[in-house]
Amino acid sequence: MSYTGHVTVGGPPQVRELADLIITKVAVGPMSNNAYVLRCRHTDEQVLIDAANDAETLLETIGEGGLARVVTTHRHGDHWQALAEVVADTGARCLAGRHDADEIGVPADDLLDDGDEVPVGRSRLRVIHLVGHTPGSIALLYDDPDGMPHLFTGDALFPGGVGKTWSADDFASLIDDVEHKLFDRLPDETWFYPGHGDDSTLGTERPSLAEWRARGW
C-alpha cells in the first residue's frame, strides 16, 4: 500500500519506506492523535514521536525490535498519556523540549533545545523550538540525504494553519517561528507530519501564510 498519511483510530498504520529510515504512522484515541515510529534500516534502532495514548497499540507498532527513545513534542496531556507505560515496558529514554519537560508526567532523561540532534541509528533528527502552542513545543526535522526533508510538527503546524494559541502574543510568536524557522528555511517539497490528522507539504501550505497571519489563528 502506498503511503498517503491518512490513518484512523483502530485502523492500520501507514508505513513510509525511505532509503535510511522507515516511518510508521498510527492514530490512537480518544482524540485521534498521531504517533510515529522511526526505524533505522541499518541498525534497527527505533524512536517513537509522541506516546500519545493506547500503549497496547503503540507497543504492537514498536514490535520486538525494542525502543531507544521517546520524544514528546509538547506538554499537552493528549500527547503523553501512554508515555509512562511505554517507557516502563521498553526502557526507552524520555526526551522533551526543555521548557515543557516538567509537564509530561514522566521525568525526562534528556532536555532538548533548538538545534539539538536526536539519533535514530545512523540518522539524525534536528530539534526546532517553536514557541506559542506551548512554551516548549518542538518539531523534529529529518533531512533525508536521498530525498526530500521530513518534518514532524506536533501541534505547531497543521494543514490549514498553525496550532491553537490562547493569546495574541502566543499567536504572534508561533506564526513568526513557523514562518521563519520552517517556511523560510525549508523547501516546498518538505513533507510534514502533524500531531493530528493528515500530512501536507510546506509548498501546499506556503501560499496561505499571509492569510493565516491576517486572520490571527
Rank of each mutant, 00 (worst) to 15 (best):
P149G: 10
R98L: 14
D116T: 10
M148E: 15
L157I: 06
E179Y: 10
I138E: 03
V106P: 04
D176M: 06
W166M: 04
G147F: 13
V131K: 10
D169T: 14
D100A: 12
F152A: 03
L130G: 01
D170G: 04
R93F: 03
L141V: 10
D169G: 10
F158K: 02
D176I: 01
Y142Q: 07
L140S: 10
D170T: 13
G121S: 10
V86W: 04
V86N: 02
D109K: 11
G132R: 00
D155K: 05
E85R: 14
L141W: 05
P135C: 07
A101E: 03
P145N: 11
L157M: 08
V106K: 03
G154N: 10
D102N: 07
R93A: 12
S173P: 03
L83H: 02
I104M: 06
I138K: 00
H150E: 14
I104P: 00
I138L: 13
L141Y: 00
H133L: 07
D146K: 11
A101Y: 03
T153E: 01
V162Q: 01
G161Q: 02
A92P: 07
D109Q: 10
A156E: 03
V87I: 15
L151H: 03
H150Y: 14
A156I: 11
D109I: 05
A108W: 05
D114L: 09
A92M: 13
E117L: 12
A88K: 14
L95F: 14
I104E: 07
L151Y: 01
T134N: 09
L111Q: 02
